[in-house]
Computed example of a mutant assay.
Amino acid sequence: MTGSWWWELAIGVAAALVVAWLALVAVLVVVRPRGGLLTEALRLPPDLLRLVRRLAADRALPRGVRTRLWLLLAYLAMPIDIIPDFIPVLGYADDAVIVTTVLRSVVRRAGIDAVRAHWPGTDDGFTALTRLTGLYRTR
Rank of each mutant, 00 (worst) to 15 (best):
L135D: 07
V65L: 08
L44I: 09
E8D: 14
D124I: 00
L71M: 11
R54N: 14
R109N: 10
R108G: 00
R116Y: 07
P33Q: 04
G91P: 10
P120L: 07
L69V: 03
L69F: 02
W21C: 04
T101M: 14
A20Y: 07
L71D: 13
L38V: 05
L49M: 09
D47H: 12
I83S: 03
A20I: 00
V19T: 13
L37C: 05
V19G: 04
L69Y: 03
T100K: 14
T138I: 12
S4H: 08
A16I: 01
V99K: 10
R131V: 08
L135H: 03
V30W: 09
P84D: 10
A26V: 13
M1R: 06
W7Y: 09
R50F: 07
P33W: 03
S105Y: 00
R63L: 13
V89W: 12
L132V: 12
G111A: 05
P120V: 05
T67C: 08
P46M: 05
P45E: 06
V19C: 11
L48F: 05
E40D: 12
M1N: 06
I11R: 15
V89T: 15
T133N: 06
G3F: 09
T133I: 04
L103C: 04
T2M: 10
L22P: 00
L37Y: 07
L76Q: 13
W21H: 12
V89F: 13
L28W: 01
L22C: 10
L71E: 15
G64T: 12
M78P: 01
A96T: 09
G121M: 07
G91S: 10
V13G: 03
V107W: 00
D58K: 02
L17V: 04
A96W: 09
D47E: 12
